[in-house]
Computed example of a mutant assay.
Amino acid sequence: MIDVYSWPTPNGHKVHIMLEECGWREGRDWHARPINIGEGDQFKPEFLKISPNNKIPALVDSQGPDGQPISLFESGAILLYLAGKFGLFLPADARGKYEVLQWLMFQMGGVGPMLGQTHHFRLYAPLKIDYAINRYTNEAKRLYGVIDQRLARSPWLGGTDYSIADIAVFPWLRGWQGQGITLGDYPHLEAWFHKIEARPAVQRGLQVLAHLRKATPTPSDKEREVLYGATQYQRR
């Protein structure tokens, strides 16, 4: 059994989608354990034992590679682990594998952090700072352009086949409107986006824990403090 300690965010969705794509079903083969990041669940000692960076998602597999339990944090590492466990969505040949891995690293080092900052300064920051909004919106547009160019000459980010690179990037682009993006400006990306969006396993993965999401994304004062205030920076 696999337990995924998560929340319905882009990084959480990556792992939910991956498990569903691998043929496992939430509630039958794996369990989603909610970590309410607005309430501060990520700072609880029991969660920090498996995710020392106090970020979701984290995974515990009772049947690890040697038959013993294993815990992992960082969504990219979890995707790689699951790809190895199931033998899916990562090419076996060296050239194909590294083609996929470079785009996975592109998501981990660029798409996630930069679009996260774009969301923060455009939607959540208590002060509207034009410099920050313009900087990160322009960076979002640049990243969308990089993806669009890639998809102009490749059916999937990692090459000829759907892979963990696509699974990693897709959830971050679902918030394109809040990122100041017009999706139609990136036609190859737009076609790829809708192709992934239509996959049944992706639709199932996006529903995991979705009932816990607030109707409005605007954080309360308490949530804002937990997510962005002094609580976030306490030494633990």
Rank of each mutant, 00 (worst) to 15 (best):
residue 195 K to N: 03
residue 62 S to K: 03
residue 38 G to R: 00
residue 32 A to S: 05
residue 207 Q to I: 05
residue 176 W to C: 14
residue 19 L to G: 06
residue 204 R to N: 14
residue 79 L to S: 10
residue 15 V to Q: 02
residue 79 L to C: 12
residue 231 T to L: 05
residue 220 S to K: 01
residue 16 H to E: 06
residue 33 R to K: 05
residue 86 F to H: 08
residue 74 E to M: 00
residue 142 R to A: 14
residue 74 E to L: 00
residue 107 Q to G: 14
residue 159 G to L: 02
residue 234 Q to A: 15
residue 208 V to R: 06
residue 133 I to C: 05
residue 89 F to S: 05
residue 233 Y to E: 13
residue 46 E to T: 09
residue 33 R to P: 10
residue 39 E to Y: 03
residue 117 Q to R: 02
residue 109 G to F: 03
residue 193 F to R: 02
residue 89 F to G: 15
residue 157 L to D: 04
residue 128 K to M: 08
residue 208 V to Y: 07
residue 21 E to Q: 11
residue 131 Y to T: 15
residue 233 Y to F: 04
residue 228 Y to D: 04
residue 57 P to L: 03
residue 214 K to Q: 13
residue 201 A to D: 13
residue 159 G to E: 06
residue 76 G to T: 12
residue 183 L to T: 13
residue 109 G to S: 14
residue 32 A to W: 06
residue 119 H to Y: 06
residue 215 A to S: 07
residue 99 E to R: 14
residue 137 T to R: 04
residue 16 H to Y: 01
residue 130 D to N: 12
residue 2 I to A: 02
residue 100 V to L: 04
residue 58 A to M: 01
residue 32 A to P: 13
residue 71 S to Q: 14
residue 120 H to E: 11
residue 84 G to H: 10
residue 30 W to R: 07
residue 197 E to V: 02
residue 151 L to C: 08
residue 192 W to D: 09
residue 204 R to I: 09
residue 175 G to E: 05
residue 152 A to K: 09
residue 114 M to T: 07
residue 131 Y to E: 14
residue 17 I to S: 02
residue 154 S to M: 04
residue 123 L to M: 14
residue 137 T to P: 06
residue 31 H to W: 11
residue 236 R to W: 11
residue 129 I to K: 13
residue 196 I to L: 05
residue 68 Q to P: 12
residue 50 I to D: 14
residue 65 P to L: 00
residue 105 M to R: 12
residue 165 A to D: 08
residue 205 G to N: 04
residue 12 G to V: 00
residue 21 E to K: 11
residue 77 A to S: 15
residue 231 T to W: 01
residue 171 P to Y: 04
residue 3 D to P: 15
residue 24 W to Q: 15
residue 167 I to P: 12
residue 203 Q to G: 11
residue 120 H to L: 04
residue 230 A to G: 06
residue 72 L to Q: 07
residue 12 G to W: 00
residue 1 M to A: 13
residue 15 V to T: 09
residue 27 G to M: 02
residue 184 G to T: 02
